[in-house]
Amino acid sequence: MLIGRFGNTSGCPYIEGRLLIPRFSIHGDFSFIVDTGADNTFLMPADAATMGLDYGRLENFDDTAKGAGGPINSYKEPAWAVFSDGTELFGYAFTLTILEYRGDMLNVPSLLGRDILHRWTMDYQFSGSRLQFEIESADVVIPGISSLGVPNTVHQ
């Protein structure tokens, strides 16, 4: 089971995980907003800068996305997202949507969308500070450490 959290001022639901972009050999650890309204998982500009993304290398431009504020220009990039329950790693191969660089979006954390959330069952109880996710499926499951302290092999 994965454990999320609520922001203490915003009340926003978050969960932590790792994003990897193989084409650029970069990765970063982020606290994603859990966004059941987002079709896709979005990398926002501050997190992109933190992981060292070079926007000049992005190729797959997309101007078809729409948000509450209107059209959104973005780029698509094959990526992995990895989450941990403290003992195992759960990997998801997906197409990451990278928002174009916009200074007015620097304060917005990256979004975990339904492309991944649909593979979990969510237990959301704000009043009890409980945000938990039961994993229904993953593309790859990797045990962290075996009972002997030796890394295990990959499940499929």
Binding site: R18, W80, V82, L89, A93, V140, G144
Partner: peptide, 15 residues
Amino acid sequence: AGELLRLLGDPAQVV
């Protein structure tokens, strides 16, 4: 699975 493992490195360290 092998691709992800190569990208991640030591799983215990990632955990």
